[in-house]
């Protein structure tokens, strides 16, 4: 399995660069991952990150934008503001989770 080093963190990744082991993630790594994709983390970003991390533990899969809105209480509009263009994928990356598989 490929690995890469980001800010001194050695992480296992898939072919695209997403973490393959959510347990290798830490908040410190999250900051480094966000910096890699040009996102400055605010409290609102952290709220989204913490929701998808805890939801992943319960559901075994990464929440879609719809679920982040309905269950996590973070509106879709806010998500596009926090993580422009591809909010669900960018959030998954920063949170050290696989890309969401759900369609909606």
């Amino acid at each position: 399995m490929p690995t890469t080093t980001i800010d001194g963190h050695v992480i296992s990744i898939d072919n695209e660069g997403f973490l393959t082991d959510p347990d290798e993630w830490s908040e410190d790594l999250g900051k480094s991952l966000a910096a890699q994709i040009g996102v400055d983390l605010t409290d609102e970003h952290w709220r989204a990150i913490r929701f998808v991390r805890s939801d992943f533990v319960e559901q075994g899969e990464t929440a879609t934008l719809r679920r982040i809105g309905v269950v996590g209480g973070i509106p879709v509009k806010t998500m596009f503001a926090l993580f422009p263009q591809k909010p669900a994928k960018k959030l998954a990356y920063v949170a050290g989770l696989p890309k969401p598989h759900g369609c909606v």
Binding site: T4, I6, G17, Q36, I37, Q85, K86, K90, Y93
Partner: peptide, 10 residues
């Protein structure tokens, strides 16, 4: 020096 592997967000 290997560059860090980061996904492309298109």
């Amino acid at each position: 020096e290997h560059a860090a592997v980061v996904p492309s967000f298109g």
